[in-house]
Design a binder for these strands. Sequence first.
DNA 1: GTCTATAGTGGGATAGAC
DNA 2: GTCTATCCCACTATAGAC
Lengths: 170, 170
Amino acid sequence: MSDARAGEIVTAARALLEGHGREALSMRRIADELGIKAPSIYKHFPDKAAIESAIVADGMREWGDALRSGQTLREIAAHHRAFAHAHPALYELMTDSPLDRSRLPEGLEAQTAAPLFAALPDRDLARAAWAAAHGMVSLELAGRFPDGADLDGAWAALCSALEAAAASGA
Amino acid sequence: MSDARAGEIVTAARALLEGHGREALSMRRIADELGIKAPSIYKHFPDKAAIESAIVADGMREWGDALRSGQTLREIAAHHRAFAHAHPALYELMTDSPLDRSRLPEGLEAQTAAPLFAALPDRDLARAAWAAAHGMVSLELAGRFPDGADLDGAWAALCSALEAAAASGA
DNA sequence: GTCTATAGTGGGATAGAC
DNA sequence: GTCTATCCCACTATAGAC
């Protein structure tokens, strides 16, 4: 499971996910991408979920890195947004179902969230901020805002509200 | 398409969606529920998407009704949350993909959103609030908050921040 | 570590008889 | 307006040969 081929499989799977969307993430297509047959993959991973978990783990590491490169709430929010837009299918895979924490490296989830809790020490407000940013991103990705909507304006309003709350509530 | 049978098909489809989740929403299972065969459905609807659109339209009407029964931002948020928890699979169907507005009654989307814009006249802030509430709900439904997380507290923090912003920004 | 062959399950949709 | 029969597609996964 940690042979070189396993890495190639995860890389191919992620390329498929990011390049052709979530429904392209099938054992057959992953195998095609590598010039092998689907059953061969099972010599390297027990099932499809294991491949997805490996992709999610990679994604969360990169996501955490992106968030860590900001200090203020606005910067963190901007990095969150940019990451999601750069990797929309990956972002959805990472967020739209329960994390299988047993298949993820210990502490990875906390490490990813750390920058937000550093910027917003109040737990309730931090969770609200994480949800708000996730909501903005997922509605954007789902194409649910009207065509002319000023999304930069909505992000700015959101950040202002959260910053004010953090300043007053501390 | 507006015969009595069509209504029964939508009702059965929705019951399946809400009772057994999204993957249960198949032409075969809808037909089973009505004691007919799948091909018969095509005499009433051109394709599966048409049935889904009918479900979404019904859901949006009910959702709008729920939101309209609140005046303050807190009440509207509480109704939004309650609606989503009462109809999780329906809520996801309504929010996780682009609206096919051509298959939806004219003005329905605006009617659903109206209560929020009434409570928060600032468009940017209103969109941020809608996104934030959606983010809270979808992370809740996806089981993405830690087990002990105080979600009522996060909702309260969110509403406080938005109310304060509305009061100061007006 | 790859293959072929296959099991088993599900899906949307159409043609044409009645 | 319902049926049977069917087509075509897709998928995860396993067994066993090489």
